[in-house]
Amino acid sequence: MSANEIVFDNVSKFYGDVLGVNRVDLHIPPGITSLVGPNGSGKTTLMNLMTGLIHPNSGVIHVRGLSPYAPEKLMKIMGYATQYDAGPRGATGFDFIFTGLLLHGFSKAEAQSRTWQAIERVGLTVAAKRKVAGYSKGMRQRIRLAQAIAHDPLVLILDEPLNGLDPLVRAETIALFRDYGANGRHVVLSSHVLQEVDVFSDQVILIANGMIVAEGQIKSVREEIHEHPSQFLLHCKDASRVASLLFAEAHVSEIKLAPEGDGLLVLTRNREAFSAALERIALSGIDIDGVIPTDENVDALYEYLIGGGR
């Protein structure tokens, strides 16, 4: 275990019978890491797990060598901008941050100074003395970000931080992430749009249905998705002959014949090449009654993440 990484070791979390995340193994190095997945995929669960707001049913988590079960140590180095809107009842933006800093043990003067710095950094100085309950969605997003950075943490966790921000503020916020991501700190943020985060993320973790689908640098994730084997079910009368022809194709990695002999399951690494091969087989006079993709999860996820599914 590296003292500089966020480590998930075979972590599972269930909410009763509902799966949160399942058998997650992750090593997140310093830099900007984006958790990307559709709504309900388990992004917030991962973030809540690493901040100790929820506990895993199995597995172990360490954040830079610290356990989420020890908030008195972990929260000294961590800031978490949650998606939860509510803060202390009736608190102003200033109070919201100032109170948190007092709990960190800063003196009143130091807490005041840090509060104003954080508020200035997110551009909320004018609204600082207004009640958070009266803030717009974007302002709440920013005040939560200010609270997360106010104590200058080594690990910054941000749940959908770009939601509700106008383009100018979004650019400023991304600049802040870049600034934070440098100097060996962690910035872990979540999004359900890959295109939104791939330009500034050092690494991306794709998550769907509570499982890690792909992880790494954005380029390798894209390749991993494209190279992920796809499975198809072919319906044809002469399954053995089709199988022998497909075996000759380099992109086909596995074929299983149906017990009845009227179909076969094919695993391919290249959909386009597979499609061309099927065309050639059909043109050669062999009847193929149907082609059904049986494993499109990853592709579907990717399509969704880059915007096709929205």
Partner: peptide, 17 residues
């Protein structure tokens, strides 16, 4: 119920404290 307990849980404070 107010959805504000996380504010306290994210402070560097032992749960017992």
């Amino acid at each position: 119920l107010d959805r504000s307990l996380h504010f306290w849980f994210l402070a560097p404070v032992k749960r017992e404290v």
